[in-house]
Design a protein around this nucleic acid. Structure first.
Lengths: 194, 194
DNA sequence: TATTGTTATACTCTATAACTATA
DNA sequence: TATAGTTATAGAGTATAACAATA
């Protein structure tokens, strides 16, 4: 099964793993890869498995979006797998590309993540030689983020792949339907009063 | 910043952390919590930060969905934080509730995750006393998943919270618009030929 | 004091691969 | 052999909290 995009960290604690003992097992040591796990061979996420009652989930806008996103991510990840560019990395590359000399804190704010997360993201992109940290003019604490030439080339190719992917995603909809969809999405989840 | 739902694991490798040495730091030890990190005090994800060029992202259906989902998850997680029920946990509870006596493998398939992930998910729900593993009739390898009475009560309350949350999410749209949105979403990302 | 980048740590979610018990 | 559940391991992504350097 293709890695599936759904995930979300949640705020509170509640970790823990009990470890129910049903079929006990002892130590194990790696072996030569034999065959893929038979139970893993499937054709991706099925948003509506036959004869399954989804209850309230079928009525929720949020779950409709979740279903769509899982399938879109599967295709997105496939499209960019050759560059090892994930959705957050792609977003970061585009933002850095179009808004050169951002500081890490600004990038974090735009992406909606913590500063520490932006550090790790930029670390990865820097190790991939796609992004460089330059000294920021006038502030010796800060960095100025830029694409490397290689980053520019890779982003251009990846963007073409993403655009093609996105066209596939929306291929069953007319241009007018796509515009309607984007408009409706943008009107969701207004900030809670309070 | 509220934990933000965007995440997605990706298939290939490419981990690694370089560890750029800018501001070096040595050992550290915990201290009393003083004040929240000042740079963290924000009002949630802003899908369109002013004066930022989003480039191709603004034209992608996938990014429009991602934007919507981040905001929806923020509100979802807030709504259910008192029960420590995350989106995947809520989905699992609903599916188990409406389809009693599922086996773990079936649950994994419905949720679109690996069997091992279903084990951890059910471990957590079992530790929370919401779900129980019963012996499956006629197959001593398998379990039959059911809600506990407490799980039923908790799910009922959580469902009310989720329905309210979802109503908030769609509160700017008419019923007709909501139906249109769901219909358009369901037509996205058809399976790739090949 | 406040901000910028960093590191340490922890947790959720997910995956792959191997394993045990059972079919 | 094949399937059901389990465990070990790994990794992305995110968070909070503390810290050093600089403003």
């Amino acid at each position: 099964m293709i890695p599936n995009a759904s995930g979300a960290s949640d705020a509170p604690a509640a970790a823990g793993k009990t470890g129910s003992t049903h079929t006990a097992s002892a130590r194990r040591k790696p072996r030569e890869p034999l065959a893929p796990d038979p139970a893993v061979a499937d054709g991706g996420f099925d948003p509506h498995v036959p004869n399954v009652d989804y209850g309230v989930l079928d009525s929720l806008i949020g779950y409709a979006i979740r279903r769509a996103q899982i399938r879109i991510y599967e295709d997105f990840v496939l499209s960019l797998s050759q560059w090892q560019i994930t959705p957050p990395r792609f977003s970061a590359l585009v933002i850095i590309s179009r808004n050169p000399h951002l500081k890490l804190t600004e990038l974090a704010h735009i992406l909606g993540i913590a500063r520490s997360g932006a550090v790790l993201l930029v670390d990865a992109l820097e190790e991939m030689k796609l992004v460089a940290r330059r000294p920021a003019a006038g502030d010796r604490r800060a960095y100025s983020l830029v694409l490397t030439p290689s980053g520019r080339k890779t982003l251009d190719a990846a963007t073409r792949a993403v655009v093609e992917h996105d066209a596939h995603v929306g291929s069953a909809l007319s241009d007018s339907d796509q515009a309607t969809l984007k408009s409706l999405l943008s009107r969701l989840a207004p900030p809670r009063a309070g």
